Amino acid sequence: MRLRAGDILSGMREQTSCDFSALAVIDGKERCISWKWASGNLNDRYLNIRVRHGQGIEGEIIKVGRGMTWDKMDSRKANVHANYSIWLTERLESAYAVPVWIGKEMKGILLIGDRSPRIYEVNQRETVDRVATELADSMEDLI
């Protein structure tokens, strides 16, 4: 049975009660990240986002190799957030993203986001972490 990324993202969005969820794929050869699937998106512009390694939310996840939270209300980072493509395209105010690992290689980035300020509770972050692990098992089918 072929896994459908859109169904997984919709289910995760429902479980976490967030406005938006998306999965990006990391292309190691071209050294860029592109968003391939989304749920709760405002339009399809996310499909045109291609970010070089080291840039945006995607680059931060690659650098730290673990989950991270962003909140537009954090004044220290507010100007930085204004330059994040996925942030702008989907009009996000808050986000939580995690890497998707296949073995020891990061192959994707899984993100949930909201269009209003929000603090993600432990159970919501754990749901995203669990879905990232499940996606890793079938990522090859999705790419």
Rank of each mutant, 00 (worst) to 15 (best):
I119H: 01
L88H: 01
R130N: 09
S75V: 14
D71I: 01
Y84K: 01
E134L: 05
R130V: 08
R52C: 06
R31T: 11
Q15M: 14
R125S: 07
N43C: 15
I109A: 10
S116E: 12
D7I: 08
K72G: 01
C32Q: 14
L9V: 08
V98H: 03
A95D: 01
W87H: 06
M68Q: 14
K63H: 11
L111S: 10
V25P: 01
D74T: 02
I57C: 08
S85M: 09
Q55H: 09
S94H: 00
I8C: 12
W87T: 01
R130Y: 13
G59W: 05
K36H: 12
C18K: 02
L142Y: 03
M73C: 08
R118S: 06
S94F: 00
L42H: 12
I109H: 09
R115L: 07
S116G: 10
L3C: 10
I86K: 00
L88D: 10
R91K: 15
V80R: 00
V100P: 04
D141M: 14
A82P: 00
R4H: 10
D114F: 02
E126C: 10
N48G: 14
S21C: 14
K36T: 11
I119L: 05
D129F: 08
E105H: 04
R45I: 12
D19C: 11
Q15R: 13
E126S: 06
R45K: 15
V80E: 08
S21H: 04
S138N: 11
N123D: 09
S39T: 06
S75P: 02
I33R: 04
H53Q: 09
G6N: 15
R45Y: 12
S94Y: 00
E121Q: 10
L9T: 05
I112K: 01
L47C: 11
I109E: 01
L135M: 11
Q15N: 12
R4G: 07
W101M: 15
A24D: 03
A5G: 03
I49L: 13
A97Q: 06
